[in-house]
Each structure stands twice: as structure tokens, then as C-alpha cells.
């Protein structure tokens, strides 16, 4: 990645286990920087999912919980209700959030939990070695859609940001991408804004981040960024899906 980041206090100085070219690391940094810049690192608690970012608890310097697969929003609810002035976020993959954890995310949003969800959409199950995710694109070949995702039997991809934005408890929902420097800067702005809204106690916030999985897509890192741009962005349009702080709903 061409951008040079300064070390953020939000991340511990340890090597991560992510594959070369995986954008999970970039997204970690954006979250960590936002928390640091908002001065809330020492009252933040994050919830790690089950997925490639399961070890996020070893990387973020704030307090962390590790949740069962898909249950992070429920765990985050417990944390936030127990200690309301905590800044609570979940960091979840697309299998975690949009498959097994659909009930938890929908209800956390519907309740307007004052938490922030960072939803990492890479169109695949990374951790388990490349199976179909709810977000896998039509025709995309994965280990469990070996002939390409057939929407007649495997159903259609879920556009999480759009779906969540229909819920009244969700106050800010935006989809961003980390495929290029300008997009990374936009992603940072969105994540920071979501945390600010949480700090104001306005309701549930979700930032969907389009991310790469070079390993399971079978692509080199640069090609993976290109694949994201050419295939994911057309299906998952970027932008603010809902901003109830201004009354904007797209």
C-alpha cells in the first residue's frame, strides 16, 4: 500500500498473521487511529469475531472481548449496557455478520444500540479456507460453490449496509472501500464519524468496508485490489446509506 501511516497507539507493536496483501491490517489501522484521535482509546472495548480477524484482540491496544461466531453484536450490547460510557465496537467478517450472526446484527441495529460495527466484506470465508459467504457474488467460484454461485440454489448476495439502513435504530450507515488511497481516506472519515455519533449517544452505527482476500480469491495482492474495484464496487455501491443525524437516507 502506498500510504505511509504513522504508528498509532491504538495498535500494539506486534506482527499480525494476515496474509500478504490482505486489507484487514489497513482496516485495523483506520479503527485504531480513529479511536486514538478521538481520545477514547482508554474507554474503548472492542469485540473480535470468529474469522480471520479472530486474533484482533492481540492487535488492538484497547480492551477486547472475543465472541462466539456471529454473536459479537450481542456481546457488545452486554458491554455497552453494563458500562454505558464505554466506546464499544464490533469488528466482523461477512460470514460472521451476514450468515451466522444475522439475527444479532439486525436486532442490535433495531434496538439502536449505541455501538459501532465495522463490517469487513471480502465476499468469502477467509479463515476456513475460502467457502461461499452470503456476500459472495453471483457466479463467483468458492470451495462450496465450485461451479460458481448459482443464485437459484444458493440465493442472492446480501447488501448489508442497505439492509441495516432500513432499521430505525441505525443512525449512520456507510459503505466504504480500502482499494485505493482516496478510498482509504474516505473510509477513515466514515469510521471516525461513526465513533463520534456513538460518543454523542445517538444510536447504532455500521461501516461496511469492502476488503480483499488475495489468498482465497487466488489473486496477487494488486490484482485483488483490481478485482475488488471491478467486481465488488459495482455490486456493492459505496457511499452513505443513511445519516439520521442529518436526516439523510439514500
Amino acid at each position: 500500500m502506498a500510504v505511509i501511516f504513522e504508528r498509532t497507539k491504538g495498535l500494539l507493536d506486534v506482527p499480525t498473521h494476515y496474509c500478504p496483501g490482505c486489507t484487514h491490517g489497513v482496516i485495523h489501522r483506520l479503527v485504531a487511529e480513529s479511536l486514538e484521535e478521538l481520545g477514547v482509546l482508554d474507554r474503548a472495548t472492542g469485540v473480535a469475531p470468529v474469522g480471520c480477524s479472530v486474533l484482533a484482540y492481540d492487535y488492538f491496544s484497547c480492551d477486547m472481548h472475543e465472541a462466539a461466531h456471529g454473536r459479537a453484536p450481542a456481546v457488545a450490547t452486554g458491554i455497552k449496557r453494563a458500562i454505558p460510557d464505554s466506546i464499544v465496537f464490533t469488528y466482523q467478517g461477512d460470514g460472521d455478520l451476514a450468515a451466522i450472526g444475522t439475527a444479532e446484527i439486525v436486532h442490535a441495529a433495531a434496538r439502536g444500540e449505541r455501538i459501532t460495527t465495522i463490517f469487513v466484506n471480502n465476499c468469502i470465508y477467509g479463515m476456513t479456507g475460502g467457502q461461499m459467504a452470503p456476500t459472495t457474488l453471483p457466479g463467483q467460484v468458492t470451495e462450496t460453490s465450485p461451479y460458481g454461485r448459482d443464485v437459484n440454489t444458493a440465493g442472492h448476495p446480501i447488501r448489508v449496509a442497505e439492509m441495516i439502513s432500513t432499521l430505525d435504530g441505525a443512525v449512520y450507515v456507510e459503505r466504504v472501500s480500502v482499494d485505493s488511497v482516496p478510498n482509504i481516506l474516505k473510509a477513515k472519515k466514515a469510521i471516525k464519524k461513526a465513533f463520534e455519533i456513538q460518543m454523542q449517544g445517538l444510536g447504532f452505527t455500521l461501516i461496511e468496508v469492502l476488503s480483499t482476500c488475495p489468498t482465497n480469491w487466488g489473486l496477487a495482492p494488486v490484482e485483488a485490489l483490481k478485482w475488488l474495484r471491478e467486481n465488488m464496487i459495482p455490486y456493492y455501491p459505496l457511499g452513505v446509506k443513511k445519516d439520521a443525524t442529518t436526516g439523510e437516507v439514500k
Partner: peptide
């Protein structure tokens, strides 16, 4: 999917 049985599904 879940390791170490995912190959059954695949």
C-alpha cells in the same frame, strides 16, 4: 464451514 471438517461440505 468449520475447521477441521470443512472438506465434507466441499
Amino acid at each position: 464451514p468449520i475447521t477441521p471438517q470443512t472438506e465434507v461440505a466441499a
